[in-house]
């Protein structure tokens, strides 16, 4: 661990180190604001000095804290996964949505929303059904990607992207059928879930998710160097001692886990994984030690802010957070394509 930290600081420049520290400060600040603001405001300081009323404390501990922490973790997870996939595919437009992982998770989740009432009306683990089936969905997609691309060796990447397109389409068909056969309340649940929201999360649901996501993020940080080498091309990285197949497996697995869990808890939140790594590259450089760590931090900051906006824009109602990220992200995406054309 110490060795890993040592290596991390070895590979980032002074400027990047400053950005890293500033981002940590901003994240703490943002989370504090995110916890204090909402349908009614209070100061977080009062919590630590014990000056809150019971109601306020209830709101803070059981609603605000889990919500803001989950937003930060999911933002970090999606951004980091985007940065990893952009590195792995050597394509600046890669995104967890691209290779079908999000769609697989969404199909699994949609299945559980529409079907659980029929098959498991009073099941003990009902709250966990949605995340579990979403993870199963993304894992299923990953397995298919693996079986399809196993024989391709170095050229596997292109085929994986193409397979991702097909899987996205298939998952769309599945979700379409589920939408068609669902009744009114299921349809409403499905629609809101598809747009993404951090509302209604509870501690017992998110604690396991947070633990898994955070440990996967820390584990993924360790492959930064290999991702750098991969930018020379797969044959070159292989010659420099990088086990390409293992690296590919590691990144896909970590993405599947963190994206599957995120999607299941919050629905589809688009464009974060695409936009954040680009912002981070614009600020301070492209090496992956810096990129992965700072993408996670920036993603967390953006997501907490997006969630805050979703809560306060049309009070007392709430906007789906996925709408906000897409509203910011899609023009950015268009600008990216425009910029590529000028190159």
């Amino acid at each position: 661990m110490l060795n890993g930290l040592d290596r991390f600081f070895r590979y980032i420049s002074f400027k990047q180190l400053i950005i890293f520290n500033v981002l940590i400060l901003v994240l703490i600040l943002t989370m504090t604001v995110g916890i204090s603001k909402g349908s009614f405001d209070f100061s977080v300081l009062k919590y630590f000095t014990g000056q809150l009323t019971t109601l306020e404390e209830e709101v803070l501990v059981n609603i605000r804290f889990p919500r803001v922490i989950l937003a930060a973790v999911v933002g970090a997870a999606l951004s980091m996964s985007g940065a990893c996939l952009q590195g792995l595919f050597r394509n600046p437009l890669a995104d967890p949505g691209l290779i079908g992982v999000s769609a697989g998770a969404a199909l699994g989740a949609a299945f559980s929303i529409v079907m659980s009432a029929e098959f498991f009306p009073d099941f003990l683990f009902t709250p966990y059904l949605l995340p579990l089936s979403a993870i199963l969905g993304s894992a299923f997609v990953i397995s298919i990607l693996f079986i399809i691309t196993r024989g391709f060796g170095f050229e596997g990447m292109t085929y994986m992207l193409l397979a991702g397109i097909a899987i996205n389409a298939l998952a769309g068909v599945g979700i379409g059928i589920l939408t068609y056969i669902s009744d009114d309340s299921e349809l409403r649940g499905l629609t809101f879930w598809t747009m993404g929201s951090f509302g209604g999360v509870t501690w017992n649901l998110i604690v396991p998710a947070i633990v898994i996501i955070l440990s996967t993020i820390i584990w993924t940080l360790k492959i930064s160097r290999k991702l750098d080498l991969l930018q020379l091309g797969e044959p070159e990285a292989y010659r420099l001692g990088v086990d390409i197949k293992k690296l590919r497996f590691d990144i896909i697995m970590s993405s599947a886990i963190i994206v599957g869990i995120s999607v299941s808890l919050t629905g589809m939140i688009g464009f974060v994984g695409l936009v954040v790594p680009h912002l981070v590259r614009l600020f301070g450089g492209v090496n992956h030690h810096y990129l992965l760590a700072c993408s996670a931090l920036t993603g967390a900051i953006l997501m907490v802010n997006a969630d805050l906006l979703s809560r306060i824009l049309i009070q007392p109602a709430e906007l789906p957070v996925g709408l906000i990220t897409s509203a910011i992200g899609s023009p950015f995406f268009l600008w990216l394509i425009f910029r590529m054309r000028k190159k």
Partner: peptide
């Protein structure tokens, strides 16, 4: 082969440097 992202020349050369047990600057 071309490199997609905007690495500096020093970073590209550094990619060839093999890490031992520890990185001695």
């Amino acid at each position: 082969q071309d490199i997609i992202y905007d690495f500096s020349v020093k970073e590209v050369i550094e990619m060839g440097w093999l890490e031992g047990k520890e990185f001695i600057t």
